[in-house]
Design a binder for these strands. Sequence first.
DNA 1: ATAGTTGCAAAAGCTTTGCAGTATG
DNA 2: CATACTGCAAAGCTTTTGCAACTAT
Lengths: 156, 156
Amino acid sequence: MEQKTKTFERVKQIFRNYLQINDYRKTPERFAILEEIYSREDHFDAEALYIQMKSRDYRVSRATVYNTLELLVECDLVRKQQFGKNTTHYEKSFGSKQHDHMICDICGKLIEFCDPRVQQTKNMVHETFGFTVHHHALIIHGICKECQKEMNSAEH
Amino acid sequence: MEQKTKTFERVKQIFRNYLQINDYRKTPERFAILEEIYSREDHFDAEALYIQMKSRDYRVSRATVYNTLELLVECDLVRKQQFGKNTTHYEKSFGSKQHDHMICDICGKLIEFCDPRVQQTKNMVHETFGFTVHHHALIIHGICKECQKEMNSAEH
DNA sequence: ATAGTTGCAAAAGCTTTGCAGTATG
DNA sequence: CATACTGCAAAGCTTTTGCAACTAT
């Protein structure tokens, strides 16, 4: 709890600085959205965030949600992801190690994993193609252990 | 040219078999769409394919384009990709080595590359998480060599 | 004061769906 | 000749935009 508060304070400070430097205004809506995101655990999409804020009786518009998400992506406090659906997903990125995702095509579960080889691949493309790497997204589709087990036992 | 024709004959055969096995009908529209895709080079989205077919005076509906793309993805003749935009992109997959993509965030160029490390990562997640891997998508965002050069010279 | 932001609703863009007509097996 | 498939247009979803009202600086 105390750790969480501390994290949020730091995150808020980063956002404040970012807004300051770029001459953007520090509106209550922007900080409310940031707080909402950092009090959630998992991945979410814009609509879910909007609904969640409404359900907490915080009045924001979708437009502001989208606008603020863009700012947060720009200052690296939020990561934007496409998991093969038409909706964009987001996740907070401060304090969490760089990771990638597996998606179970049966139950939809999202599993995070880390693999240093991805970094090596990024180094490789820089050296081989002269490509300046900003960020990457690696998504592995398949069937998770649990669903696989269920399918196996269903065979009998 | 001759190679291309041969490739298309094999691809058509695969599609025919797939339709046969699943009791789907072999309609001229489906084969026309397959041919259109395999006569193109690069990546495309559903709308571009639709427009392209219209411009060749082949009458198809968007519904049929989407329906057929789904069938082609299912029989592995076409790969479906999300490149961080809201539109789904497709590319033919027969006869092309498994590869991943870099996207230049400045000019939008798509560059393909191969790296065996990705396969190792897939093996790793299978061993570590018991995850049955079906396929993956690795996208690297950044700035291509040419745009980088342009930006450097613009500094003076 | 003044211009960046917000909320709302309308519009835009991609994809799916319902239905009547058509053509495959 | 039964019914899967097609075309068309409408509907559905997510995201963007225009504009009047508001507010941070």
